[in-house]
Design a protein around this nucleic acid. Structure first.
Lengths: 152, 152
DNA sequence: CGCAGATAGTTGCAAATGCAACGATATGCT
DNA sequence: AGCATATCGTTGCATTTGCAACTATCTGCG
């Protein structure tokens, strides 16, 4: 245990550097394979988790924490690769549903073991189960508060 | 406590979304002021912590986890603002020392309270001291392992 | 000493980002 | 119904990013 006077500030600093370092490592590893980058995985996974395998653009953007304009273009790339498709929303003439395709699900399944192995190697391996639970709980609380506060 | 079967995978997912969400919130808040963006702070702080207020470019890049080419241009911006300066390294004719200036220290001091308040508001506020210690320790271990393994 | 290979930092380039502005549609108020 | 206002998704633009290539310098080995 640290005996740092400002444990919370320290935790924040470490959180930042952990994110940067691990994303860099994992991203590089992923880039070494022929598989798509990490943000494609996020999109596919969000869609696959969602009811009916589809989500509105703005909702998807919110969930993966990306600006709408960036999502527009990320979705363009995924759509070109036939991993998702945009279908007109029946409820709302302005918007679309992003829907994961069969190929999209297949791609996510193919990416998962690789991604999982990297997470294991760079993250899970180094922390205990209790720590994992604590991290999950504590950070989830902060995220929830941030989401509930000022609307993005 | 969660009773998730895959607590570690879950912790990883939450870590990602916490980082994205909180950086977004804090970054937006910072942008609302007239102060420079967050990555400027990181550079200034790294330099201020370092022996003699200076570091070699590659070492600075490593510490803030940024590619060398990006650091070159980030340093350009900071240097234009007179917050740092590049001085030829006496030891190595190829490289420079990035040194923080008096104005650089002043700017960091001015940014800190604002940044600190945002960290408090979006992060520290929501976690306990024990959780902070756990997060700091666990993630520091992972970072250390990542750094020690394959050289970046 | 002298040359091969590694390393420091910069630059060209293509890709990805967010903001602001836009057309299109939905919603609410009278 | 009719008009003001908000929201959806896309696009133009300026900024930032990393990779690969480049020059300059250092290091080691014959």
């Amino acid at each position: 245990m640290t005996k740092d006077k400002d444990s919370k500030g320290h935790a924040w600093a470490v959180l930042l550097s952990a994110h940067a370092t691990l994303i860099d490592k994992i991203g590089t590893a992923l880039a070494g394979t022929k598989l798509p980058p990490l943000d494609w995985y996020d999109v596919l996974w969000e869609l696959e988790k969602a009811e009916g395998g589809k989500l509105r653009m703005h909702e998807l953007a919110r969930r993966i924490v990306l600006s709408r304009s960036s999502l527009t273009r990320l979705a363009d790339r995924l759509e070109s690769a036939r991993l998702i498709e945009r279908v007109d929303s029946p409820d709302d003439g302005r918007g679309y549903h992003c829907a994961i395709t069969r190929a999209g699900r297949a791609m996510r399944s193919k990416m998962w073991p690789v991604y999982k192995a990297e997470i294991e190697h760079h993250f899970s391996r180094h922390i205990t189960l209790d720590e994992a639970r604590t991290i999950g709980d504590a950070l989830a609380r902060a995220v929830k508060a941030a989401r509930d506060s000022a609307p993005s």
